[in-house]
Simulated assay, not measured.
Amino acid sequence: MTDSQSPPYPAEVFDVLESLLDEPTHVLDVGAGDGALARPLIARGRIARIDAVDTSAELIAAGRELPGGCRPDLHWIVGAVDRVPLDGPYSLVTAGSRLYWLPWKRTMARLAEVLSAQGFVAIVEHGYRRALQPIAEELVARGLFRKTGEHRTMPTPYAVDGTQPVDVVATVVWGRPIIRA
Score class of each variant (00 low, 15 high):
105 K>T: 12
58 E>M: 09
5 Q>C: 10
128 Y>I: 11
53 V>L: 10
1 M>F: 13
46 R>I: 02
161 D>G: 01
86 L>W: 00
38 A>P: 01
114 V>T: 12
163 T>I: 01
168 V>D: 10
13 V>Y: 12
42 I>E: 12
22 D>K: 14
125 E>L: 12
148 T>G: 00
22 D>R: 11
41 L>D: 04
112 A>W: 08
114 V>R: 06
181 A>F: 01
13 V>Q: 08
15 D>H: 15
98 R>A: 05
163 T>Y: 05
41 L>S: 01
164 Q>T: 08
1 M>N: 07
135 I>G: 11
151 H>P: 08
6 S>Y: 05
28 L>R: 04
165 P>W: 01
69 G>M: 10
76 W>S: 00
132 L>W: 05
70 C>D: 09
61 A>E: 07
105 K>A: 12
175 G>I: 04
135 I>N: 03
8 P>C: 10
39 R>H: 02
144 L>S: 13
5 Q>S: 12
178 I>A: 02
150 E>I: 10
130 R>M: 12
133 Q>R: 09
76 W>F: 03
111 L>R: 00
69 G>E: 14
171 T>M: 03
65 E>L: 13
160 V>H: 07
114 V>C: 08
20 L>H: 13
149 G>A: 01
36 A>Q: 09
158 Y>P: 05
14 F>S: 06
169 V>Q: 07
95 A>P: 08
60 I>R: 05
97 S>Y: 10
55 T>A: 12
109 A>K: 02
105 K>P: 00
2 T>W: 04
11 A>Q: 15
153 T>R: 02
169 V>L: 07
120 F>I: 06
30 V>P: 09
82 D>F: 02
92 L>T: 08
25 T>D: 00
75 H>S: 11
126 H>I: 03
178 I>L: 14
105 K>Q: 12
156 T>M: 14
109 A>M: 05
80 A>R: 04
133 Q>T: 15
46 R>N: 10
160 V>F: 10
88 G>I: 10
51 D>L: 02
92 L>F: 04
72 P>W: 01
170 A>I: 10
104 W>H: 13
8 P>V: 15
145 F>V: 14
3 D>H: 09
71 R>A: 15
177 P>L: 00
86 L>D: 06
28 L>K: 02
19 S>G: 14
85 P>A: 06
89 P>L: 08
1 M>A: 07
154 M>T: 15
105 K>L: 15
35 G>K: 00
158 Y>E: 02
36 A>F: 01
89 P>A: 07
14 F>Q: 06
119 G>T: 00
158 Y>A: 06
106 R>K: 12
163 T>M: 09
37 L>A: 11
93 V>C: 11
132 L>H: 08
14 F>V: 10
57 A>K: 13
50 I>Q: 03
43 A>S: 01
42 I>Q: 07
